[in-house]
Amino acid sequence: MTLTTMLSTMAAGMARTTGIFALTLIGSLPLGMVVALLRKSRFGIVRGIISVYIAVIRGTPLMLQLLVWYFGPFYLFGASIRGWRFPALILGFIVNYAAYFAEIYRGGIESIHIGQHEAGEVLGYTKAQTFMRIILPQVVKRIMPSVTNEVITLVKDTSLAFTLAYQEVFSLAKQISASQTSFMPFVIAGVFYFIANYVVAFAMARIEKSMDYYR
């Protein structure tokens, strides 16, 4: 296998990695907010369910969760899992990352001084208006460093997709390395991940900077 073939095969894998990454963020960033808000629900049962969910997600390996998502339907319901590989993968990632984002959001929301809520209330804003106009913008600014951390971790976590034999860049690197008895695929994969994270860090720094106009 020439280096060019290797590179182009692995670039296709990197595109799939990017796909997992993007879909996970699109799903988990908003879902995390829903979870964070439900965690503060006035119904005890809802709060209970949410804290069990977060405890289970944080207390078990993502790799195991992916396997459960993929094989669960077969072992639990005897359902066919044909074509289920990619949906299971994305679901596993979204549900996992939403739990972590939810905790980051919760920390952010709780860190906003009560006076901000009260000022909104006295000025006649509805609860939803106070949250959207006053609280959330400040939360976003405050949690950016933690979100950046999580997003960078996600770039690397996408490699866990190899557990379900999904052909993203890490699975391909392993396969090609074994079949070609070459170390090169690992080097290429490493460079790909590094570049991806460099781009992520750069983009996040730009977003953080755009909120620098206030303290």
């Binding site: 006076g115 901000q116 009260e118 000022a119 006053i134 600014k141 206030y214």
Partner: peptide, 10 residues
């Protein structure tokens, strides 16, 4: 008017 002002910083 609050003791701590509670202006919206953003």
């Amino acid at each position: 008017v609050f003791q701590q002002f509670n202006l919206f910083p953003h």
